[in-house]
Design a binder for these strands. Sequence first.
DNA 1: ATCATTGTATTAATTGGATAATACAGATAC
DNA 2: GTATCTGTATTATCCAATTAATACAATGAT
Lengths: 127, 127
Amino acid sequence: MPWNLDDSHPIYLQLMERIQHDIISGVYQPGDKLPSVRDLALEAAVNPNTMQKALSELERSGLVYSHRTSGRFITDDSTLLKKIKTDLAQEYIGSFLEQMSRLGISRSETLEMIIQTIGGGDDDTNS
Amino acid sequence: MPWNLDDSHPIYLQLMERIQHDIISGVYQPGDKLPSVRDLALEAAVNPNTMQKALSELERSGLVYSHRTSGRFITDDSTLLKKIKTDLAQEYIGSFLEQMSRLGISRSETLEMIIQTIGGGDDDTNS
DNA sequence: ATCATTGTATTAATTGGATAATACAGATAC
DNA sequence: GTATCTGTATTATCCAATTAATACAATGAT
C-alpha cells in the first residue's frame, strides 16, 4: 500500500500526520515498537531521511520516543494520547469553522450543512 | 492593513483564497471592478508578479475576468457565485470530516463536538 | 569478534516559489 | 497627438525547504 502522498505539501508533514493519526486512533498501541526508520521509509516509498525527519519531529510532541539503538516506541502515557487527540480535534474544528466563516457562512448554517452531509450515511465506527 | 500572510504556504495561494473569499462573501460585489494588479500588490505588500499569478489563477474558475486594458472584474453570474460558494463549503466539510475520521472520531461524535464548540457564542451574521 | 540493525549526523543536490527588472500592447484622458 | 493607466509576458536571480546519498555510532545477536 503506497502511502498516498501528494505533491502539494511537504512529504514529511504528510508522514507526520499519517503516523500521528495511526497512533491516536489506535493502529499502533501505547508502548508498541514502531517499525524501523528504514522499514517505514520502504513501506511509504520515501527516502529514509524524510521518514527520519517526520519521526524526529513527532518526538517533540511526546507521542513517540527513541532508544537510540533499539528502536522507536509509542508513548505509554494514555492520558497524553487522549489529550493530543482532543487538542487536535479542537484545532481541526476551529480552523474549519473559521474557514466557513470567511466564506460568509454562519455557525448555525454550518451546523445545518454538516447535518445534511452526515444525514444519509449513518456510521459509528467507534468505541 | 497588511494582508496577514503566513510563510508556511505559498503566498499566491493565500492571495487566491483571500480574494476568492472576499468575492464569495460579498466584500466585492458582482460586476465590481477590482483594484489593479499593482494596487492590490501594494496593499498586500507583495510583488506585483505574485499578485498577478494569484489573479490569473483565479480566472480559471470563472470568478473574475479581465478586460486586458480596462481592468479586472468580478463575474456577474450570481448563479456561478452561489455554486462556487456551496462547492467550496462542501469541499471544506468533506475534508474536515475525513480528517476527524482519520483521528478515529465518528461522525456523530464530530457532530457533538461541533455543537459543543458552537454552543456558547451564538452568532448569526448572515442573510 | 563479527555482523546486522538501530537512530542520527552531515553534506550535497534539487526544486519551487518569490522577487526583481523590464518590456509590450491596448485603451482612455487630456 | 501624448501621457498614463490597464493586464500580460519574459527573463534572471535569489533563497529556503526538501530530498538524496552516504557515513557514523551504539547496541544486540550469533
